[in-house]
Design a protein around this nucleic acid. Structure first.
Lengths: 143, 143
DNA sequence: TTACGACTGTTGTATATACAAATATAGTTA
DNA sequence: TAACTATATTTGTATATACAACAGTCGTAA
C-alpha cells in the first residue's frame, strides 16, 4: 500500500516534469518559455478583459513573485500591455495584444502537435477517471 | 475530449508541483532540499554499493548537470562520501555515510507525516488504477 | 604506441526562481 | 483627518537550474 502510494506520486511528479520539459523545448524553438506561455493563455482566456498580476498568479503552476518580470518580457516583445487600473491604482491591468494573440496561436499549434500522440494513449473514459483520481488524491487540501 | 485531456494534464502538472513544493517545505525545516533528499534516498537504496554520478542522475526527477554540486553540499554536511572509482578513474564512487543514514531517517519521518493524510484519500485499487493510467498516458514515450 | 572518438564528471555563465523587503494605494477606525 | 492595517505589485538578492564548454580517462584501431 505505502509502496504503491510512493510509486504513484513518483509517477505523477515525473510525468508532470516530463510534460513541462517537453513543452518547454517546443516553446523554446519559438523563443519563449512555459511560464510566458501560461501568462499568454490566461490573458487570452480573459477574452479582452484586463487581468491583474494576482489573477495571473492564481493561474500559474508555480506560485511566485515573478509575474512582474515575466510580464516585463512579454511587453518587451510587444505581446502584452500593462497599464494602471483606473479604479484601483494598486492594481495593474494586463492585456494581450493582437500580436500576442497571433503568437499564441503559433504556440498552441506547436504544443498541440506534441500532445496529439499522448492524447491517443487514453480514451475519454480513462482521461476522466485519471482526472477524478488525481483530484481525489489531494481532496483534503484544496485550500 | 481535447478539453478533458488538457484539464487532466494540467492536474497532473499542478499536483506534481504541489507535492514537491509541500515536501520541500517540510525538508527545509531540517535544512535540506528535495534534490538532496532524492540523492540520499538513491544512495540508501544502493545498500552500501557505491553509486556513480550518472546513476544518480538517472534517478533524479529533473535531469541536469548539477549532481556534482548537490553532492558537494551533502559532502560538506558529512552526509555523503565521494572517491574515485578504482576500476574506472572517470567515475566517482558516491556513498552515504552513517550520519547520512540517520539524517535520512529523520527526513523520511517528516515526509511520511506529510503524505499520511494524502494516502488516506485513495484505496489500494484506486492507487493502482491511477498509476496504471499515468503510465499509459506516456506509454509511447518511455524511451 | 599513438591517435581518435566516446564516456564521465566538473565548471562557467546566463537565466530563472524563491523569499523577503520595499513601495504605493486603498480601506478602516479612533 | 491621522494612524493603522490590508492589499497589490515591484524589486533586491541569494540560490538553483539549464546549457554549453571543458578536462580527464577509457577503448580501440591503425
Amino acid at each position: 500500500m505505502k509502496e504503491t502510494f510512493y510509486q504513484t506520486i513518483y509517477q505523477i511528479i515525473c510525468t508532470g516534469h516530463w510534460i513541462t520539459d517537453r513543452v518547454n523545448q517546443e516553446l523554446k524553438e519559438l523563443g519563449t518559455t512555459e511560464p510566458q506561455y501560461n501568462v499568454l493563455r490566461t490573458l487570452k482566456a480573459a477574452n479582452g478583459k484586463p487581468v491583474t498580476v494576482q489573477q495571473i498568479l492564481d493561474k500559474m503552476v508555480q506560485r511566485s513573485s515573478n509575474v512582474t518580470r515575466i510580464v516585463d518580457k512579454l511587453i518587451s516583445k510587444g505581446l502584452v500591455e500593462r497599464k494602471e487600473c483606473p479604479t484601483n491604482r494598486r492594481k495593474m491591468d494586463i492585456t494581450i495584444t493582437k500580436q500576442g494573440l497571433i503568437f499564441l496561436q503559433k504556440l498552441d499549434k506547436k504544443v498541440d502537435a506534441f500532445n496529439q500522440p499522448l492524447m491517443e494513449n487514453l480514451n475519454e473514459t480513462e482521461l476522466k477517471t485519471l482526472k477524478k483520481l488525481i483530484l481525489k488524491l489531494k481532496s483534503n487540501h484544496n485550500e
